[in-house]
Design a protein around this nucleic acid. Structure first.
Length: 902
RNA sequence: GGGCUGGUAGCUCAACUGGUCAGAGCGUCCGCCUUACACGCGGAAGGUUGUAGGUUCAAGUCCUAUCCGGCCCACCA
């Protein structure tokens, strides 16, 4: 005898191993089957997987397993992302915590080695999680964005873009994170409303001219001011344009200029122009040929400022400058002001607009065909409402800053010669006398060397070449993922067979960072978009709807859930809430519910097994069935399976999971199994067992993509009754719905019986009839068909409503001392001598009556409205008529019952 | 400033192209250890579908306005 409760621990670990050993997840590129391909959004190696991965990858797993069972060569390509800045930050933090070292203590080479070691540890932890979650990922086939093949792809991509002159180096004002000390691309910057202050400062007129008051949120940058700008149409300042004013604290004279960028009416109408530290100012400065003065270093410290402030942190300097301005009487006003602060998406520090030399990719030519692909529907977003934002982004695309001043990542494959100037490099000695790369310029025909490994200089033959110190944006390599995973640029058989992929499943928060880049790169290098469909999943939030974050302490760890409830329950709890595109508020109660469902499946199987064991041989589904509940369950089953498949194909996993959940728990367990119980002692035994086994087995297959472990485990025990030869469900076929089993008439008959049974149960509960007591019931109907059904299936009512001595006839009289219920056209009389509470019964009936009367009134009004009769579809009118007559009958029966009470 | 999105039972969410009495899970209440399952069984209570108008024979579903959330994009100091 099996234990009463399902214990996932006993099966999950075992099956996860067997699946890998027997290579159940391996795809076979042998031309036999159509491919169905999904490349995994490679998780960053920044730590353990979280619930977001749990959802995202489980959705992919459902699609992969479903298509595998549908006969496709389903290939879910596993892999990891090196994660650039994010990973470097994590490793640096660990290093600081564990060894009190910085990356500079280790030096670049040693640090990079440390990260590789980290990758090994963190990576293998992630692989273990893949297995524990039951994801059908072939572990022998893992890719990593930094492995050799992917590095080759990155190099090839860089080279081709360089050759097309899409990649260039330029001095620009870029987004700089002073904590990570690196440049970021525009989309790596987040905007956050922070409460701050707006200071009004007095800039005195030079040579006795008028003063100007400007408003700024960044007083510490006044030392970098090159001008004060006003709107050209601003009457107030018209006479001042061309004059000079003095920067407070330094008395440096700067011109007053007119520029449209200044908005009339905002603040004081005058804007200090600081080209080196503000994007707008940079443009204004360019238009007016202003001097660019940097006063903040890459670490966020003050430089080129009066000695007093030199070396101060920018935030400290801000306070000091305000204080000094106040003392100098030049601070006119200080007001509260909320403004959007740009922050680093990796560490949250305030971004500093920073003038520096960086590598860029020119994007407009890459975006154009991607726009076309999205507009034409060659790439479709699900849900569709993301199409517009994606298009808007592509249409307003900015050049992509791809260089990062960090150590972990693909090094920019550009080399310079230290022996000649042919590669565009200028060197100088720094304070310590080390030779530093100071300036790269490809003007004057200088050409750098593109190479993955150290080359000799093609210009002078010198061997003293040095590689560009920067690394590429981590998204540069992930943009190539859908084809780099198949070995591109090599023309491998896999590349041919599996590209383009069928589907991308990812979160909407990385549409621009990743999805858009893949589309552009795929078209550029492969000639085709990498996938026709993008399925966007929501974010898993905590149960109050907040984003899960370590700082809030509301993070749920999938591994904990697995330990407590099993992987199937963890998966199912996510899937049943996975409405396309919607965020999921996640609480532990949902996984408890899913765990209970697992137990329900297990126990249903246990029960069926107990009763099927005695039966010899196979249990084929009977071709002909005459018993109502058999016909009914087969009809329900075939409908459920069809609905589940349809929902999966529409990416509505919540609908699919719900359908199967309710079919199995409701129809199958609550009704069919209960009706089956008494039949085990009759001639019907083998037939019932056969239907139970087959419907259960089919349902297990239908559920397998959702809960792979428990379904595999149970199905394995039942396979001997079936004709299945394949050992694993993944190698068996997804159940097909067979229309010949769908029987609306049987479902209607069964619905009548279910309704009647429920009515009787309600009455029993209402009047506290002892659960064991059998009660007599009379059915009085005016409908011959209903009479026939009830008469024929007395047994169902006896069994499920604990009734006895049933009598069914046309228009019977209501016995005294009985409770009355009405279902369809049948009145149900339950004699309850001594048990009945007349007041209670009267109240119950009155309530019932009022509901029915509302229904009657509605339908009478509808049918009395000639526009309804004229305009509504004939079916609707007939339905209303039918309902009206039934309700009228019901009302009269209830009235009669009320009148007869006593 | 532009765009997207949501406001449905105590909670979390469903409801296909407008058409039964708006559903489920959890929670609550009542009764049950009925020989698969108390991680269970049976039953009940609970909703003017944010608000105000409109279109329609018919609206949670379409339109307008409005209030309250959430998100994304954008160079207003």
């Amino acid at each position: 005898m099996l234990p009463k409760a399902y214990d996932p621990k006993l099966v999950e670990e075992k099956l996860a191993k067997i699946w890998q050993e027997k290579q159940v997840f391996k795809s076979k590129n042998d031309g036999g089957k159509n491919p169905y391909v999904i490349v995994i959004p490679p998780p960053n190696i920044t730590g353990a997987l979280h619930m977001g991965h749990g959802l995202n990858d489980t959705l992919q797993d459902v699609l992969i397993r479903y298509h595998r069972m549908k006969g496709f060569d389903a290939n879910w390509v596993p892999g990891l992302d090196h994660g650039g800045i994010a990973t470097q930050n994590v490793v640096e933090k660990t290093l600081a915590k564990e060894k009190k070292l910085t990356r500079h203590d280790l030096g670049r080479e040693e640090f990079v080695n440390t990260v590789w070691q980290w990758y090994k540890d963190c990576g293998s932890a992630i692989y273990t999680q893949f297995e524990k979650m039951g994801w059908a990922l072939d572990q022998s086939n893992i890719r990593f964005t930094m492995d050799e093949e992917r590095a080759a792809a990155v190099y090839e991509c860089f080279k081709r873009l360089w050759d097309k002159k899409y990649i260039y180096r330029g001095k620009r004002l870029i987004n700089w994170c002073v904590r990570c000390t690196t440049a970021l691309s525009d989309i790596e910057v987040e905007h956050e409303q922070r409460s701050g202050k707006l200071w009004h400062l007095r800039y005195k007129g030079a040579d006795g001219g008028a003063d100007i008051i400007i408003a700024t949120t960044r007083p510490e940058t006044i030392f970098a001011d090159s001008a004060v700008a006003v709107n050209p149409h601003d009457e107030k300042y018209k006479n001042l344009v061309g004059k000079k004013v003095l920067i407070p604290l330094t008395q440096k004279a700067i011109p007053v200029i007119a520029d449209e960028a200044v908005e009339l009416g905002f603040g004081t109408g005058a804007l200090k122009i600081t080209p080196a530290h503000d994007a707008v100012d940079y443009e204004v400065g360019a238009r007016h040929g202003l001097e660019i003065i940097s006063v903040i270093t890459d670490k966020g410290r003050m430089i080129n400022v009066p000695a007093k402030y030199e070396g101060m942190d920018r935030e400290v300097a801000k306070k000091q400058v305000v204080k000094d301005l106040e003392e100098a009487g030049l601070l006119v006003k200080e007001e509260k002001y909320d403004n959007a602060v740009s922050t680093c998406y990796r560490c949250g520090s305030a971004i500093e607009p920073f003038l520096s030399e960086q590598w860029f990719v020119k994007m407009d030519n890459l975006a154009a065909p991607a726009i076309k692909a999205v507009e034409s529907g060659a790439v479709q977003m699900h849900p569709e409402n993301w199409k517009t934002p994606l298009l808007n982004w592509l249409k307003n695309i900015q050049d992509w800053c791809i260089s990062r001043q960090i150590w972990w990542g693909h090094r920019i494959p550009v080399w310079y010669c230290r022996q000649c100037s042919g590669t565009g490099l200028t060197f100088a000695a720094d304070k310590q006398g080390r030779t530093q790369l100071v300036k790269v310029s490809f003007e004057d025909g200088a050409k750098p060397i593109l190479s993955q490994t150290q080359p000799a200089c093609p210009h002078c033959g010198g061997k003293d070449t040095v590689q560009d110190p920067d690394v590429l944006d981590t998204w540069f390599s992930s943009g190539l993922w859908p084809f780099s995973v198949f070995g591109w640029p090599k023309e491998t058989p896999d590349l041919k067979h599996y590209y383009p992929t069928n589907m991308l499943v990812t979160g909407y928060e990385i549409i621009y960072l990743w999805v858009a880049r893949m589309i552009m790169m795929g078209i550029e290098f492969m000639g085709k978009p990498p996938f026709p469909h993008v399925f966007l999943n929501g974010i898993v939030r905590d149960k109050t709807g907040k984003k899960m974050s370590k700082s809030l302490g509301n993070v749920v760890d999938p591994l904990d859930l697995i330990k407590k409830y099993g992987a199937d329950a963890t998966r199912f709890s996510l899937l049943i809430q996975a409405v396309p595109g919607k965020d999921i508020p996640y609480g532990e109660d949902s996984v408890v519910g899913a765990r209970n469902f697992c137990n329900k499946i297990y126990n249903a199987a246990r029960f069926i097994q107990m009763n099927a064991e005695g039966v010899e041989g196979k249990l084929a589904l009977p071709a002909q069935n005459t018993e109502l509940c058999d016909i009914w369950i087969l009809s329900r089953y075939n409908k459920a399976v069809a609905a589940a498949a349809k929902a999966i194909e529409g990416y509505d996993m919540a609908a699919a999971a719900n359908t199967l959940y309710h079919f199995l728990w409701g129809d199958f367990c609550d009704w069919y199994i209960e009706l089956a119980k008494p039949r085990f002692t009759t001639q019907d035994k083998k037939r019932v067992a056969a239907i139970l086994v087959n419907v259960l087995y089919g349902t297990l297959k239908a559920l397998h993509p959702f809960m792979p472990f428990i379904t595999e485990e149970i199905a394995a025990g039942f396979r001997k009754f079936t004709n299945e030869s394949a050992e694993f469900l993944l190698r068996q076929s997804y159940p097909a719905s067979d229309a010949k089993f769908i029987n609306e008439a049987a479902e209607a008959q069964m619905a009548l019986l279910q309704g009647i049974i429920t009515q009787i149960r309600t009455v029993r509960a209402q009047f506290n009839v002892p659960p064991g007591a059998k009660i007599k019931v009379l059915f009085s109907t005016s409908d011959a068909r209903e009479q026939a059904v009830i008469n024929k299936y007395f047994a169902y009512i006896t069994a499920l409503a604990k009734a006895d001595n049933l009598v069914c006839g046309m228009d019977l009289t209501r016995p005294a001392q009985s409770a009355t219920a009405v279902f369809a056209n049948t009145a149900i009389y339950i004699p309850l001598e001594g048990l009945i509470d007349f007041a209670k019964e009267s109240a119950r009936l009155a309530k019932e009556l009022s509901i029915v009367e509302t229904g009657i009134a509605n339908r009478t009004r509808m049918l009395g409205n000639e526009n309804f009769v004229k305009n509504a579809p004939a079916g609707q009118v007939a339905k209303a008529k039918e309902e009206l007559s039934q309700m009228q009958l019901k009302a009269s029966q209830i009235k009669e019952a009320i009148a007869g009470l006593k």
